[in-house]
Design a protein around this nucleic acid. Sequence first.
DNA 1: TAGCCTCGAGTTCA
DNA 2: CTCGAGGCTA
Length: 670
Amino acid sequence: MARAAESVEHEIERLRRAIEHHNHRYHVLDDPEITDAEYDELFRRLEALERDHPALVTPDSPTQRVGAAPASGFATVTHRQQMLSLQNATSREEVEEFDARIRKFLARDAIAYTGEPKMDGVAVELVYEQGVLTVGSTRGDGVTGENVTANIRTIKSVPLRLRTGGRAAPRLLEVRGEVYLPLDAFRALNREREEAGLPRFANPRNATAGSLKQLDSRITANRPLDLVCHGVGEVEGASFATQAELLAALAAWGLKPVPQSRVLASVDEVAAYHDDLAARREALPFEIDGVVVKVDDRTLQRRLGQVSRSPRWAVAWKFKPRQATTRVLDIFPSVGRTGVLTPAAEMEPVAVGGVTVRNASLHNMDEVERKDVRIGDHVVIERAGDVIPYVVEVLTERRTGEERRFHMPQHCPVCGAKVVRAEGEVAYRCTGADCPAQLKQRLQFFAHRGAMDIQGLGEKLVEQLVDTGLVKHLPDLYRLDLATLVELERMGEKSATNLLAQIEHSKQTTLPRFLTALGIRQVGDATAKALAEHFRTLDAVVAAPVEALQEVRDVGPEVAASIRQFFDEPRNARLVKQLVAAGVKPAPVERAHGRLAGKKFVLTGGLASMTRPEAQRRIEALGGRVVGSVSKETDYVVVGTDAGSKLKRAEKLGVARLDEDAFLALLGDA
DNA sequence: TAGCCTCGAGTTCA
DNA sequence: CTCGAGGCTA
């Protein structure tokens, strides 16, 4: 028993030291070593131990205060009322417990809540005296923060004087809010920094903290920070019955209230609100890491009061973290279709945003060197914006000295050919003309939907065909027969027959598909289509001199040279000849005409009545074009379910939007 | 010559 | 989906 108590004491002390350390890194140095999720984990563990062992709680425990001492350089501001932090919840069960606690405390059956997105930024307080902004400060440790008035004043959405519509302003108004950097501004800032040779910010919150702590407010003024408000501290000369009323009053005074807030009548509605925001998270123009649930009635809020460091009437329901830290086990190059060696990191499996991640591409050597990722490093990984994980930053302070740098091999790991880096290019390329890795990728690209469209020829089969030597060059595909195919693993007579039919079918292709399938550098499906429309026949494309190629829309000197170089290479000329000899017949396509001739479409989200490639075909059949990104040149954005950032951009640029019904009507479907 | 627009290329997990 | 870069246009 005594020994158990000792070990608990030991663990509490260890946790406190760790939390104090990370507090300092985060709040004072703006340079955290661990993710928020890991920090929260430590904090929760300490809270749990202290709850179970109240005798061990001391006033200097990190649980007994909010943050750490402010960095030097700014004057200190004492908040009239302590700026509290929120209790966290990570599941519906915990929110139900929160609701049950409150109902029990107040002896009520039902409580109305307000839901707000939990903005991932920097918490601040603005003080308005007689309606004039006098002080802006960071939260700091909750009791005292830093005076960042000059920087706050640069934020466009912060009124320097409240709008009162002729009536008297409140004598005193302390507003609590969150400063953040909108995502597009964050990306633009990182691009600029990269060009200037400065390190990138790991995430918008770090960028916000860095911007807000500039001693020179002219720098801050160049960062398009924004501030939204979600609460008040001390107020004289005004009062609000509910949180919703408070937000409305702030808005009336010209402040920006937290967007997308809602009054919620039950835990069910709270859960629906949470799920809705979680689903729309990626499409929002700012980062959020959860929702904040507050008791709406301010009188009830006062009755509930607070427990040590947080109000009893609010809880932050956090989303599953999209960031996580893990360790790089190995870095190895993979060989792509064009021979490019792409370094990839193999990591200890870790859960991020609901899936287990093991691999992440490191894109190229410049990236590896810029981030200085080494084998054995602890890294922060993220699945932001899209699904694909990437390494955000290396936690250099966790290095032990055992880490190994990755060097690009001088010879291809698959075929042993020399690896070269062309002048002015970031990519390293395998020069092996018969590299099996390249052949596999090229074969798969050849069979791809947008190219020859050979269904059933997937990764596994390609692997077998190349490894068994059945396919040494692309034209070998057209010499396969039933007897050899059925020898392969997992290949019966039925699937072999189907595959042969698909291969046979692919011979009746179109010129643009065929040109795409060849895999000419810088020629994708759009350029292939333009070439086909311009030259009409394969022979004409193959024979075209550079000057003629440049007459094609979107083909300049670079692309023209690349095309010419491809066909001038004897092995490529032979490849084209052999494919044609094998029976491949690329048919010319009609020039674009039709009802939608010259119209540009962008597709976003999913459609119920057809797939995206199908929608593209339908549009093109009527002479329209489908492009990947929205610009003011775009004629229509087709908005499906779960539309992404393209819809936002369309709204901003005032581009016409079509829902599925309107789109079908345009296509001429009933 | 700069800035916009579009295209190409690479890519993870279930 | 996003980034980098080629090509086009004001």
